[in-house]
Design a protein around this nucleic acid. Structure first.
Lengths: 163, 163
DNA sequence: TTAGTAGTTCGATAGTTTACGAACTAATCG
DNA sequence: CGATTAGTTCGTAAACTATCGAACTACTAA
């Protein structure tokens, strides 16, 4: 298959995956997918438009959403007004940090639910109540895993700076 | 604070949390939240309606969505036509199983992206390329954690059946 | 200082989602 | 049977989202 065809196909697939998971608009998700599948050089506004076939306005809005979220970044070349958009090197760190917030919220919620139920429906907590316990330790481990991964990435980033 | 007020507040909060995370409609999310905050006895259709203040039609549709997903179940009492809706005991298992599917998709996607990029932009993979590696081992560990938790819950369910 | 390039802002509109009410079905009871 | 209860189906209205084109700003280069 040609690169172009393969790229189109992957943009479609990855776009759909991203859209649901990351709560981005379909267009933002496709632009993000395209940038993930691009060279270190980056792509210009018009290059993106030519591949995705989107209007200037929507492209502008959605690129800015991705910039705002730190999923992508841009640089410029001297004597060239165009912006070159590329994947933020630590975009996966940004993602994990957002995910950690979600995990914290999830844990808070479970705690509130347990408080409420323990208070008003103590019968729910009579015996060992193990399904809930298994789930809670799962949440705890997941949080620790995410935190550990974030630390590793930050360490790596620091070690890079020193060179 | 009165139970009623506290319940209302939590339905609102949990509902919002669930809505985004689980891709349920606002009403489905609230009904789910209410059922999470209810006794083992369960609630009837009309009891749910009275608390959530929703129409018969929407309530029907959204309860059926939750039933379909195995988040809730109902039982009936002899000589009583009403259905009593309550939380499915292993609803967290159902959730984790869905989450595992999501994790698998995520990993497949990363693989596809890597294949594509390795093919067309080998420069992205010159040095040790550690951010990607850290992220991939995070995904692997997450998957294992979820699988381990699912197994634990299933074991627990089996051990319960024997009694 | 004007022409062109790069990108933004602002309505308008098409499409989707969410919930509703009214009319319906299906089961039970007197 | 006829009335009542429990819940479903269907068409529609309201709200929201995603994208667009046209008009605009801002910067650059001749």
């Amino acid at each position: 298959m040609s690169q172009k065809k393969k790229q189109e196909q992957l943009i479609e697939q990855i776009g759909l995956g991203i859209e649901g998971n990351l709560h981005l608009s379909p267009l933002a998700a496709r632009i993000y997918a395209l940038i993930i599948l691009s060279s270190e050089e980056g792509l210009t506004f018009e290059e993106i438009r030519a591949i995705i076939l989107s209007s200037k306005s929507s492209t502008s809005v959605n690129i800015n959403v991705l910039l705002q979220l730190d999923y992508i970044l841009f640089y410029t070349k001297p004597g060239d007004r165009k912006r070159y958009f590329k994947l933020a090197k630590y975009s996966s760190l940004v993602l994990l940090e957002a995910y950690l917030d979600g995990t914290d919220m999830e844990m808070e919620m479970v705690e509130k639910i347990n408080d409420y139920n323990r208070n008003y429906f103590p019968e729910k907590f009579t015996n060992e109540e193990s399904v809930g316990q298994i789930f809670e330790s799962y949440l705890e481990e997941k949080k620790q895993l995410v935190e550990r991964t974030i630390s590793k990435m930050k360490e790596f980033r620091e070690s890079e700076k020193k060179h």
